Amino acid sequence: MASAMAGCAPIVDTRGNMVDNDRIETVKIGQTSREQVQQALGSPSATALFDNENWYYIGKRTETLAFFAPEVLEQQVLIISFDKDGIVSGIDRLDKENGNQVQIVERTTPTAGAEMTFLQQMFGNLGRFNAVDGRGALPTGGIGR
């Protein structure tokens, strides 16, 4: 009975960088440099695509019970903005309430070429091998036997 109950215990999983509030409070707008932010918070999960003015710390904590889909317990995106001198100019936080669910599209993209069955793939190359001449050599000069 105890082993059956242990199998139903929820699994809590943390992915990404869930930054503690204590560490976030060490970052001061107008005072903290990029290097100090990296020492306090670690490397960012992502940076701005075209400039290095925004750093993103992204994390999620989920709970999975048995075979059910994971439930999001906590989700956090911390955005640290820097001015041109590399000093913190803004701190923004987004959480689970700010997020949008994205629906995955279940379509497939057609490709050029013929659709082959399993048997066509298995037997399609029969008869396409190079013939060995009387000396046992392949036409390319390799040894065939």
Score class of each variant (00 low, 15 high):
Met1Phe: 09
Ala2Lys: 13
Ala2Leu: 10
Ser3Lys: 15
Ala6Thr: 13
Cys8Asn: 13
Ala9Gly: 07
Pro10Phe: 10
Ile11Lys: 10
Ile11Gln: 12
Asp13Val: 15
Thr14Asp: 12
Asn17Asp: 13
Asn17Met: 04
Met18Pro: 01
Asn21Ser: 13
Asp22Phe: 04
Asp22Ser: 11
Asp22Cys: 03
Asp22Val: 07
Arg23Asp: 06
Glu25Ala: 10
Glu25Cys: 01
Thr26Pro: 00
Thr26His: 03
Val27Glu: 03
Val27Phe: 07
Val27Asn: 02
Lys28Thr: 09
Lys28Ala: 06
Ile29Cys: 04
Gln31Cys: 01
Ser33Asp: 08
Arg34Tyr: 08
Ala40Arg: 01
Ala40Asn: 06
Ala40Gly: 00
Leu41Trp: 03
Gly42Ile: 08
Ser43Ala: 14
Pro44Ile: 08
Thr47Phe: 01
Ala48Cys: 05
Phe50Gln: 05
Asp51Glu: 07
Asn52Val: 01
Asn52Met: 03
Arg61Phe: 04
Arg61Asn: 03
Thr64His: 03
Leu65Gln: 15
Ala66Asp: 02
Glu71Lys: 13
Gln75Arg: 07
Gln76Glu: 15
Val77Thr: 11
Leu78Gly: 00
Leu78Lys: 02
Ile80Asp: 02
Ile80Met: 06
Ile80Val: 15
Ile80Leu: 14
Ile80Arg: 01
Ser81Leu: 00
Lys84Tyr: 04
Lys84Cys: 06
Asp85Ile: 06
Ile91Glu: 00
Asp92Phe: 15
Arg93Pro: 01
Leu94Arg: 14
Asp95His: 09
Asp95Ser: 10
Lys96Ser: 09
Asn98Ile: 09
Asn100Tyr: 12
Asn100Trp: 11
Gln101Arg: 11
Gln103Glu: 14
Ile104Val: 12
Val105His: 05
Val105Ala: 08
Val105Cys: 06
Glu106Ile: 07
Ala114Leu: 12
Met116Leu: 14
Thr117Asp: 03
Leu119Gly: 07
Gln121Ser: 11
Gly124Asn: 04
Asn125Ala: 11
Asn125Glu: 10
Asn125Ser: 10
Leu126Pro: 04
Leu126His: 03
Gly127Asn: 09
Arg128Gln: 14
Arg128Gly: 09
Phe129Gly: 08
Asn130Glu: 14
Ala131Leu: 10
Arg135Ser: 05
Arg135Gly: 02
Arg135Lys: 02
Ala137Ile: 03
Leu138Tyr: 04
Pro139Tyr: 00
Gly141Arg: 08
Gly142Thr: 01
Gly144Asp: 02
Gly144Glu: 04
Arg145His: 13
